[in-house]
Design a protein around this nucleic acid. Sequence first.
DNA 1: TATTCAATTAAGGTTGAAATTAATGCTATC
DNA 2: GATAGCATTAATTTCAACCTTAATTGAATA
Lengths: 306, 306
Amino acid sequence: MLSSDDLLFFGTITASASLADAARQLNVSPPAVTQRLKAIEQRIGVRLIDRSMRGLVLTDEGELVAAEGAAIIDAIERLDDRLERRSTSVRGKLRIAAPYGFGRDYVGPVVGEFARLHPEATVTLELSDHPATLSSDSWDLVIHIGALNTVGRIVTTLAPNHRIACASPSYIAEHPSIIEPDDLQQHRCLALRENNEDVTLWRFTKAKCDPATVRIKPVMATNDGAVMRNWALAGLGVIVRSEWDLAGDIAAGRLVRILPDWQCPDADVVALLGARHGRSRRATVFLELMRASLHPVPWREAGRGT
Amino acid sequence: MLSSDDLLFFGTITASASLADAARQLNVSPPAVTQRLKAIEQRIGVRLIDRSMRGLVLTDEGELVAAEGAAIIDAIERLDDRLERRSTSVRGKLRIAAPYGFGRDYVGPVVGEFARLHPEATVTLELSDHPATLSSDSWDLVIHIGALNTVGRIVTTLAPNHRIACASPSYIAEHPSIIEPDDLQQHRCLALRENNEDVTLWRFTKAKCDPATVRIKPVMATNDGAVMRNWALAGLGVIVRSEWDLAGDIAAGRLVRILPDWQCPDADVVALLGARHGRSRRATVFLELMRASLHPVPWREAGRGT
DNA sequence: TATTCAATTAAGGTTGAAATTAATGCTATC
DNA sequence: GATAGCATTAATTTCAACCTTAATTGAATA
């Protein structure tokens, strides 16, 4: 009889380009995959995969096993989830994806705290350029900053986040002062080009004023937030970035906010819940911990205090 | 994550009266069951069974696992079946139940032949008093002789089978001759009492005659065919039994057919196909073999020959 | 009260599935 | 032709799941 392990194993193979690739995914040597697959085929008396050069081809039976097997594994995982949700303790594997900067500074410590509080759970934190574009099936939680196409996704907000315009003190000293958004057109603006969005259009709003839209002329553009921040720190221009990413620099005086009365469109910190395990107990607990760590917002609290 | 083995194991437990009973079913020692169950509960972090004196009580989670687990195991078995049916070879486990006499004389040899032809298959033949009353889920094939309530069952006929009236030569010599069915009322009749049927009413039909019904007065009755046969061999009376069971005795002259022109209601040899595996390739192949071995009907062929 | 049976804990022991290493044939690509 | 990556076979090795025996506890029963 086929076991769930067999089905899991076969599922990994079908998701791979080759047996060698599957071996890498499974962290075993190639012969292990060949042997085990052969053993399964021998046991059920049917060839499942035609191995040819350049890629694997499932036989009809292989397709059957892949489809039915996936459904069976899915049923087991759902059962696991239902049990896990009834469990009093937090356990299981939690896989989190987050953007580089925010992930390192804010998610990492919370993961540590989570692991300390719940020793029976295991956590994986993967930092990535654009986590929101990752296949949601591989992750329980994907943390993301900014607007997002939420169609078909389950999203929860972790913390408010404003975007602000900044420049280094040296830049401000050496360039004309900025009173109105329109003044930016005379300045060296640095654009963060992500997801093919139109980043040369900066919007500002201010209480009791009409919104202002400025078409900037980016002197430099990058798709990496850290690079852009370094440019700003080096006094190369004005950037618009989220508070969370700049908090440290502003507190330390390395960057200075400009147009402090004007606000950019918000880019809240949100978490995308994976369809499968995103609503498990461990995920819920982690999100609570994450919210608690982001609230109160550190620098605002500091400003309010004293 | 729960494995299919876990679910199979847990399913066996839920079908048992106690852990010790489950251990017997699984052919392992009691501690093995305790330990493995404990390991599973620990892994998923939920108690599944409340062990109390006198019987097991499933927790809510236990009910959940039992129900979902059964469905998952079922899905795997269906997948296995579909694969097995596509396989070119005959393999897997075949479980057959048959009545004692017929099973020993006719099914046993065919099972031997089957095992010889298909070394990759394993066969279990269990002989039982009344196999048709067994839970059909435990058997791939149940072989049965005689009329049967076929509601909700899948039945296929293996061989025709007439029932005939017999007595030993010594009995016939010492008692009045029997010309008409009604004459039986004066004879010592032996009844086979099975399944609470009314066995004291013997029916006979003859070409171009009205059916005859005789209410016999059984001098002895039993629920065991072999016992009744021995009584008849000992000259203790007249019996009505199926040809297959008496073929050897009649051929050897130990029993003599009476009322040869009259026929009793048929009691064909049929096979009940188990809902689950009864239509697997191995079952089909076995049935073919069984039919071939029962056809031509041995003694009729012998009679025809020469 | 003595006995029996179920359940459990503790402490090894088995074994077989699945891994590894090493070596070979094969194809595609440089 | 040389190189590199994939698939495979063969021969060991490893390791963890699972088992066993032995001993203890506790409840039910004769």
